[in-house]
Design a protein around this nucleic acid. Structure first.
Lengths: 347, 347
DNA sequence: ATGAAAGCGCTAACAC
DNA sequence: GTGTTAGCGCTTTCAT
């Protein structure tokens, strides 16, 4: 079968009507299954037969123009490419949208604010019914104000004045879960190697760590908290682990800000001749499959709920769209999604 | 600024025309910068002012309905989420599309063929001008035949009868480059730890390996080719490396099917007390950033051109669309993109 | 230099 | 039960 050459005119409802010997209206009723029209089975059959014969397919553009519903959501993000998680957020959003017969119109803009505004403008021209504005890691954003023209949900990000609904990972609970897991395994000297950047994850996970300690009546010891960078250069998790293990009273468990850092910790522990989890337990964050897959023993970690966040964003957006005529909620919901524990063998 | 409540009617060209005291036609001419209309600057100014005042924005749906051009490409893929590369292909495609004022309408379907057909059907209803059908790793696919109704480009996959244009990585050249890199570094005993699955990458890289050997007059020695699985279970690269190094005449360099396997090889070499690259050189494939970033010394590897493939797919598709009325080409182009060498320190 | 009018493919109120 | 009709917002031809 050859690809169709030329922009041949596709059959319209009119063509179907003519062939079936009915009016175009009747075809519309049949196609859309309009109950109140009471089209008898016979007529229906005739119409469907004509439809099949012609290979008729409804034209969503025309439908949208008429009904002013496009069933399309805009998905805009800063940098789809640069993170392995991007796909999961998109997939979550797409799945939720698809469930309700909506599709995603995708745009990405670098960090360029001008481009961002142009992108939103384009989405609006295309009559998207709402916009999902996504960041590739949990952070504060400032989208162009034009975005307020249409229902919007922030995905993996938030706006300081909270004027837009958002969905983000529950960093505090994540940090709490990691720490509690260690506590429940019997540890009391628990170190936390935190990230050095001032981002929600850094603050949140630390808060969760402290809260868990407090809940279990373990005094907070600040010598057990290290601040490290990721990657080989600078003070990293490898060195932080060394320092920690040379404390007079070293930890028996280490909670690492992320899996990448946990790798370095593994290496340091290995070099020190310490075994995981017997001598020291380790827990990470992010559930980066490849790392967890590589490390021996498998790294127990806390996962970022990317798929679920994407799903929630689309789902909530669709809800906002449906209720667009309802009174505005007192304040846009700032939804948080739990970061689940992923058990492997390092605790 | 509050999000817009209610589906308030947006201003149309008619509203602008009324406010500017001109006909709707004139507004259209102004908005679209129609030269032949010769609208004097004064009128233009009046119209633009009205546009601004009303916050008018053209309705792409109406425009599309009228012109039967939607400037929209469908992007359909099996499993966006499951690979860290997905984002790069999407971004490449999106960038190329955006450059020509097109947008991507995204759908993903699991492996489910029924869903796949429904997805394409939906895209066609929405009048996409072409479809990019993507796979998440280089392989043979069999899209539903309905896809032939519209110009289509296969991305990172191909169809056995070659009836659709495709873009895939040049596995042979990649294997050749990897091997040649090793040869040029002075090696003559070069092992290849290949993958066990029967996929294009497996065959192609092996072919490239053999070709490079031949070009440099190095006899092919099949004891130097191992077949391994990835991951911890089964015969893997770790064990393959052990076997290789215990040969009577062991290799001085190892080309691993992918970076994941190279990791295991590193580990085996390390265990054997062999240093990289002094005792044994290692080269990988895929350029999986996280692995390359982790390994010491940094892993020299060959990259899969995901972004470029995505870009080419959209670009070529747009070209097909533009030339849709031209005579069909004798056969759809099967484009191949080079896999570039990424130099680090393992060779 | 500008406008009137037709029509893209569809939905839906209303008529018969 | 089915058809007539009036647009949705736009492009474009043809008149003036």
């Amino acid at each position: 079968m050859a690809a169709q050459r030329s922009r041949r005119k596709r059959p319209s409802m009119n063509d179907v009507a003519r062939l079936a010997g009915v009016s175009q209206t009747t075809v519309s009723f049949v196609v859309n299954n309009v109950e109140s029209a009471n089209i008898p089975p016979e007529t229906r059959k005739r119409v469907w037969k004509a439809i099949e014969q012609l290979g008729y397919r409804p034209n969503a553009m025309a439908r949208s123009l008429r009904s002013s519903r496009t069933h399309t959501l805009g998905f805009i993000s800063d940098e789809v490419a640069t993170t392995p998680y991007a796909g999961q957020m998109i997939q979550g959003a797409q799945d939720a949208a698809w469930e309700q017969d909506n599709l995603l119109l995708l745009v990405n803009t670098g960090a360029d604010a001008r481009l961002e505004e142009a992108a939103i403008e384009t989405l609006l021209e295309r009559q998207v019914e709402g916009i999902i504005y996504a960041a590739m890691y949990h952070r504060s954003v400032s989208p162009p104000s034009i975005i307020h023209e249409v229902p919007t949900v922030l995905l993996d990000c938030f706006i300081p004045d909270r004027s837009l609904p958002s969905v983000t990972p529950d960093e505090v609970q994540g940090g709490y879960t990691a720490t509690e897991t260690l506590i429940k395994a019997g540890h009391r000297r628990i170190a936390f190697i935190n990230n050095k950047d001032d981002i929600p994850a850094t603050r949140g996970r630390l808060a969760g760590y402290k809260k868990a300690l407090a809940d279990y009546h373990i005094p907070f010891d600040e010598t057990l908290v290290q601040i490290a960078g990721a990657g080989p250069s600078g003070f990293n998790s490898y060195e932080a682990t060394y320092q920690l293990m040379h404390l007079a009273n070293p930890p028996t468990a280490i909670f690492c800000f992320n899996d990448r850092m946990a790798m370095d910790t593994y290496q340091a522990l290995h070099r020190l001749g310490l075994s995981i989890p017997d001598d020291v337990a380790v827990i990470g964050f992010d559930n980066q499959e490849i790392i967890a897959d590589i490390l021996r023993p498998g790294l127990t970690t806390v996962a970022l709920p990317h798929y679920q966040m994407g799903w929630w964003a689309a789902q909530h957006l669709l809800q906002l769209i449906e209720n667009i005529d309802a009174p505005a909620p007192s304040s846009p919901v700032q939804h948080t999604i739990a970061c689940p524990l992923v058990l492997r063998h390092s605790v």
